[in-house]
Each structure stands twice: as structure tokens, then as C-alpha cells.
Amino acid sequence: MNTKRNTIFKVLALAFLLIIIVVFVKFFTSNTNFDKDEVYVQVPTGSTYTDVVKIISPYIKNMNDFEVIAKLRSYPNNVKSGRFLFKKGMSAFQLVGAIRRNIPVKLAFNNQERLENLCERVSSQIEPDTTKLLATFRDTLFLKENDFTKDNVFAMFLPNTYEVYWNISAEKFRDKMLGEYKRFWTEERIAKADALNLTPVQVITLASIVHKETVKKSERPTVAGVYLNRLNIGMALQADPTVIYALKLRDKNFDQIIKRVLYNDLFINSPFNTYQNIGLPPGPIAMPDIDAIDAVLNPTNHDYLYFCASVEKFGYHEFASTITQHNVNAKKYADWLNAQGTKR
């Protein structure tokens, strides 16, 4: 009798072991269908379980196995939007776990020329599209509450790398950028801006001009000093980059390359034209890097009022305190441009 019971027990144990093996092979071994080491899948806000199945099916070898585990773990009733990481060789069990873990995006932007360009750059990295972002950044109530205008709200965005979730809303992303902006403007930086009789937005607006004038970090404080000297005596900034910006704005073409500002260009009717308008333009003409902002906050103390590109030290500028010396420098540069055949 005992022998018969032992036999039955062994048969049941073997059957149980076989079931465990089958279950393990079916649900706990590789169920991925891609060659890369890892892929990211994006589940849009408001997606249903059916939507998720359509999105992830190209990456999964056996969807039936995935769905069995998904239902056992109550995933169909708890779908999450976001960005999810699938690694090569994941099992059905691991894949269901992965589709629950929202992976942040390291969102980066710099050197954008205007708010529209920034929105295009950002929308390529998170869920909200360009139109939604632009409308959110230019929301009338938001601008009023934070002392921005449609022309200068671009100053709020500081070039950097930020960690956000892919499915972050446009409003939450905007608020995060506002928080980063406020953190940047420490008491020390605000004190330096006050000493220059400038607001933070005005500092960034001037920094955008300095940024466009020179890529040489070593001379940015000197360039900033020139413009601050002009502001202090009520002299027009006469910054060529602002004219270039005005021309691009007029033509609605920010892809065009303008290497030379012509005499007639100086008369373009635009609030951004600092040859025709005294003071700063209504907002930044580009996204300045932090170095350019700090150059404005820490300018070189000198008596220069003029500068133009150097033909002897390419990439740098020649500075002058008098219009006579400046005209000499400017003629050298104009002659060099003519010799190169640069018309525009």
C-alpha cells in the first residue's frame, strides 16, 4: 500500500515539477522581439489597455503570454502613461513590471534663437506638442502673474539638462522652468543686476546680444561693458545682432544666414532694431548661455563705447573709446569683407 502511495506521490511531484518548468519557460524566459539591447516605448496620456497592446506588440514575441501575466497583475485596469524601458531578453513577467515604471527623460536645450524654436526642441523630447507648449508659455494669466510679456518670456528658459517625465503636461513643464529660473536668480545675482539698474529679464536680454556678438568667453565681459556704457549715457546700443533678428522676424525666416548687415538694414522698422530705438529690445534675441549672463552681471570696467570684428585676431574684436578710432577699425573690417566678396 505504501509503495502504491509513494508511486502516486512521485507521479504527482513529477507532474507538478513539469508544470513549474512549463510555467517558467512560458512566463519567465525571454519574450522580447528586438535586436537592440534596449528600447523605449511611449504610452500617451489617456491610453487604454488596447492602445498599449498595439504600441508594444512589435517588441514582444508572444503577446498571449504577456497578456496572461498582465491580467494576473491587474495591469489592464491600471494602465499608466509615460516612457518605459524594455531590455532585450526580458520575460513576460519582467515586461509587465517594466510597463509600470515610468522612466524620466534627460531633456536638454541650448542655443535656441526664439521661443518657437525652443518649443520645437522640447516637443521632440516630451509628449506635449509645439502648439500646446507655445500656447502655455504665452498664457495671458501666467504672463501677468509672473511679470513677463509675450516678447520676453523666452528669458525664463535657461540652457541646461533637466530630468522630467516624458508625459509631463505643458503646464507642469512651464512651472518647472519657472522654478529653475527663480532658483537661478539668487540674492547675489539679483543684487548685481540691481547695481546695474537692470531687472533679471533685462540682464538676459542684454546677455542674448553679448552671446550673439562673440563666442569668445574671455571678451564677453568687455563686450558687456561696452553696451552698459552706452546704456548709461543714453546712447543707442547699435547692436548688429538685433538688426539681424529684426530682418529674420520681418521675413518670417529664421533659417536664413546673414553674415553682413548693410547700411539700409539699419533703418528697418522694428522694436528689436537697436539702431533706431534707444535702450534694450523688448526681449531676448536668442537664448544666452550662462557664461553670457554672468558676463553682463560681471562686466569689465572700461571706457570703451565701440567695437568691431578684428581682421587680425579672427573671432575677436577691436575696441575703441572714440568714434575716430572706431571708424579706422570699422574700415579695416569693411575692406576685408569686400575682399572676401561677402555681400550678405
Rank of each mutant, 00 (worst) to 15 (best):
Q238G: 04
F173V: 01
D291Q: 15
L18T: 04
T342R: 11
G234W: 03
K259A: 13
L206A: 02
S310T: 06
L17W: 08
D37N: 14
F272S: 11
P271C: 08
L237E: 00
V164H: 02
L133E: 02
I293V: 04
P299F: 05
C119V: 01
A108S: 12
T274R: 03
T131P: 08
F254A: 06
D294G: 11
I126V: 11
F154K: 03
K144L: 13
N269P: 04
A330T: 02
T300P: 06
A207K: 06
F157M: 09
Y227F: 12
R73W: 15
N31Y: 09
F142M: 06
D265P: 08
G46C: 07
G82V: 05
A70Y: 03
S81A: 12
D265E: 07
L305I: 07
F314E: 00
K4D: 06
Y49R: 02
L196D: 02
R189S: 09
Q325H: 13
S57H: 11
N329F: 09
R260Y: 11
K343D: 09
H326K: 09
G179C: 03
D240I: 02
L12H: 14
D35A: 15
P104A: 11
N117S: 14
D35P: 13
N327S: 04
E180H: 14
I293F: 07
N277T: 06
A330L: 07
A207R: 02
N77C: 12
A239V: 01
L18A: 14
N62S: 13
P104S: 12
P284S: 09
G225Y: 01
V39A: 11
P76V: 00
H317F: 09
N338V: 10
E116S: 13
A135V: 11
